[in-house]
Computed example of a mutant assay.
Amino acid sequence: MTAVDVHYVVEGSPDGPPVLLSGSLGSDLRMWAPQVAALTTAGYRVVRYDQRGHGRSPVPPGPYSLADLGADVLALLDRLQIRRAHFVGLSLGGMVGMWVGQYAPHRLHTLTLCCTSAELGPPSGWADRAATVRAEGTGAVAEAAVQRWFTPQWRAAHPERTRDFQDMIASTPAEGYAACCAAIETMDLTARLPKISAPTLVVAGADDPATPPAHAQRIADAVPLARLEIIGPAAHLANVEQPGIVNDLILGHLKENS
C-alpha cells in the first residue's frame, strides 16, 4: 500500500469546509464539473482529483488494490493539510470512500456514495475487461461504458457531451484502467460496512445498469448512519444526468451534518 501523488485541483473558498470529489473508473476530474459551482457558491473548498492511472495522475504498474487507492486519498489530504473532509465518491470513487470510512474514519466528516457497490462481481468480468483493455486499449470499451453511464434519452439529447465522455474514457491510460479493474475484481467491503461511522448519504440512479439500486440498498442497510435516495431518470453518472437533484442532495447532507 504505497501512495502516489495524484493530480488535483482546488476551487472555492480557501477557508471553507473541504469537500473531496472522487470519480469513477475511466473518468478524470472533469466528470465533477456539474457539482463545482453549487458547492463553491455554498462556501465549500472543493478538491477534485484523478484516480491513480487516470487523467494526469501517475500510472504505476498494476494491479492496484482498493487500499492503494485509499492510501492515495489519505496522502492527498495530508498534502493539503486537511484533517477531515466531506467525501463524495461515485462508482470506483464511492468504493474508495467506503474504504476510507472503514479504515480511516477519523478523516471523514461525512460520506456521500453515488452509484456504487460494496461488492461488484463477478470477478471474472473485471479480469476479462482488464485483459481487453491491455490488449486493445481503452477505446475498445469506451462506447459500451458510455452506454452504462447515461440513459438512451440523455445520450440522444446530448450527443456532443456523450462524445466528450466517450473520448474521456478512451484517453484513460490502458494500464491505469486495467489496474483499477483489478481493484474492483478483488474488492469486498461488505463485512466492514457497519464500521463506517460517518453520516452517509447513498444515492442510486434508478436506471443504472452498472450498480443497480439494490447495491445502494445493501450499503444503506448496513451503514449505521445512512439514508438512501433513488433518483431518475438517471443511469450510472447520475451526477451528470441529474446535476440539480444530486447537488441539492449533497448540499442538504453537508448542511445537516456541519
Rank of each mutant, 00 (worst) to 15 (best):
P209E: 06
R218A: 15
H236R: 00
P233D: 12
Q242F: 04
A234S: 13
H215A: 08
A214C: 09
V246S: 09
V240S: 11
P233V: 07
A210M: 12
P224D: 01
H215R: 08
I231C: 08
A220I: 10
A234F: 03
A210G: 13
V246E: 09
T211F: 10
H215S: 01
P243H: 04
L225I: 00
V246Q: 07
E241S: 11
P224N: 05
P224L: 01
H215Q: 11
I219N: 02
A238V: 12
A235Q: 03
R218P: 00
A238I: 07
A210L: 11
A235M: 06
H236Q: 03
P209C: 07
I231Q: 07
V246Y: 10
A235P: 13
A216K: 01
A235I: 03
D221C: 05
A235N: 09
I245K: 15
P213Y: 01
I231P: 04
Q242N: 06
A235K: 03
Q217E: 15
Q242H: 02
L237I: 10
E229R: 03
N239F: 11
A220H: 12
P243K: 00
P213V: 01
E229G: 08
P233T: 09
V223F: 08
V240R: 01
A216M: 08
I219P: 05
V246C: 10
Q242M: 04
H236L: 00
P233H: 06
A226G: 12
G244A: 14
A214H: 14
G244Y: 05
V246R: 03
A238C: 15
I231Y: 02
A226R: 07
R218W: 02
A214V: 13
P243C: 07
A220K: 08
H215G: 00
L237N: 12
Q217V: 06
V240P: 14
G244V: 13
P243I: 02
Q217L: 08
V240Y: 06
H236Y: 02
N239S: 15
A210Q: 08
A214I: 09
G244E: 15
G232L: 05
E229V: 08
P243G: 04
P243Y: 02
P224Q: 04
N239T: 15
G244W: 07
A220F: 11
P243A: 06
E241Y: 07
N239I: 06
P243Q: 01
P209S: 07
I219T: 04
N239Y: 02
V246P: 07
H215F: 13
L225Q: 14
I245V: 15
